[in-house]
């Protein structure tokens, strides 16, 4: 059993890859390294935001932690136990405590089941969590908790709007009373007014149930709103990590700076000191990542050294770590030069 000082989730040097198959005979001709050497810790009751563009490996990271993908190597330690080592019933018991909220509220609910069936499916799979006689009452409780009308338990997903479906998805994730909830772009597909409702709901649920969130998103303002700590990923690697305050007031990695400056803000005139970094080009294919620092092909600071050696994730100040050969000191980063390549 984990002591109070131990993190609830600890990911160490995690690698996940997918085979690339040839069109002919489907032979494996190589591997895409979607997650390559990611480590972080997440304390109980906290929220860790994971940000990055598509292709950064953030979704694969989430799927590996929850067991939808098999890691190539590395450890996923949940509550003091290494998940890939567990087997059978033990693994199922551990997995019960990790649940996931999916991005697409339309695809994540089985269209053939009613909301009550969707939520209670978890209890059919894990007998003993909720006795069958209590299912109806428990479904109603959960629906009320996520802000839906409990009388709508017998309706089908298509009878709900996108935001309401996402609430059903949240209710399902809560059915097994998990300790860790992975939100994979859980609010990205929602209209902004509905997104704010769901964000508030997630915050309330965390306070009420003591949940721990791994919050994966590409929207930095949403991540800043909900997270305690943030991990920025680029092509399968962590490039910068720290607390929200550290990351958003003084980002030190060029990629984080670029991401932050690209976030559209409604009143740009009110923030005249915002950096204007418009990155050139796209994220390279994870099938053939650049040598050395993976960000160097889009980085305005890149030198010879960046192509030669991969920068390590180094602590710059009080847990604020970045992987860059030319780091700015966190204190100075605020006045970083305005760059427009």
């Amino acid at each position: 059993m984990a002591g109070p000082a131990d993190p609830l989730l600890s990911v160490r040097d995690l690698y996940t890859s997918f085979p690339i198959r040839s069109a002919f005979l489907r032979r494996e001709v190589g591997r895409v390294q979607a997650v390559s050497g990611v480590s972080f810790e997440l304390a109980a009751g906290r929220t860790l935001g994971v940000v990055g563009e598509s292709g950064s490996g953030k979704t694969t990271l989430a799927r590996t932690i929850i067991g939808l993908e098999r890691p190539e190597s590395g450890r996923v330690v949940f509550d003091g136990r290494d998940l890939p080592d567990l087997s059978g019933a033990e693994l199922r018991r551990a997995r019960r405590q990790i649940q996931m909220i999916f991005q697409d509220p339309y695809a994540a609910l089985n269209p053939r089941l009613t909301v009550a069936q969707i939520i209670s499916e978890a209890w059919a799979i894990h007998p003993g969590v909720v006795p069958r006689g209590r299912w109806t009452a428990e479904v109603k409780d959960l629906l009320a908790r996520v802000g839906l009308n409990p009388d709508h338990a017998d309706r089908y997903p298509h009878q709900f709007s996108g935001g309401q479906r996402q609430r059903v998805g949240i209710a399902r994730a809560l059915a097994l009373r998990p300790r860790l909830v992975i939100c994979d772009e859980a609010v990205s597909a929602l209209d902004v007014s509905v997104q704010a409702q769901v964000l508030n709901l997630l915050v309330d649920l965390q306070a009420d149930l003591g949940l721990t969130y791994l919050f994966i998103a590409h929207d930095l303002s949403v991540v800043r709103h909900i997270s305690d700590e943030v991990v920025v990923m680029y092509l399968g690697k962590v490039v910068e990590t720290g607390t929200v305050a550290q990351m958003f007031t003084a980002p030190v990695h060029p990629y984080t700076q670029a991401l932050l400056s690209a976030v559209p803000v409604p009143r740009p005139w009110a923030a005249p000191h915002r950096q204007q970094v418009v990155l050139a080009g796209d994220i390279p294919s994870p099938m053939s990542p650049p040598s050395g620092c993976r960000f160097r092909t889009r980085c305005w600071k890149a030198q010879q050294q960046c192509a030669a050696a991969e920068p390590a994730l180094v602590d710059r100040l009080a847990g604020h770590r970045s992987a860059c050969h030319f780091p700015e000191l966190p204190a100075r980063a605020r006045t970083a030069a305005v760059v427009r390549p």
Partner: peptide, 8 residues
Amino acid sequence: LDVTVQAQ
């Protein structure tokens, strides 16, 4: 599109 590409 991704946020950096969106800015472009």
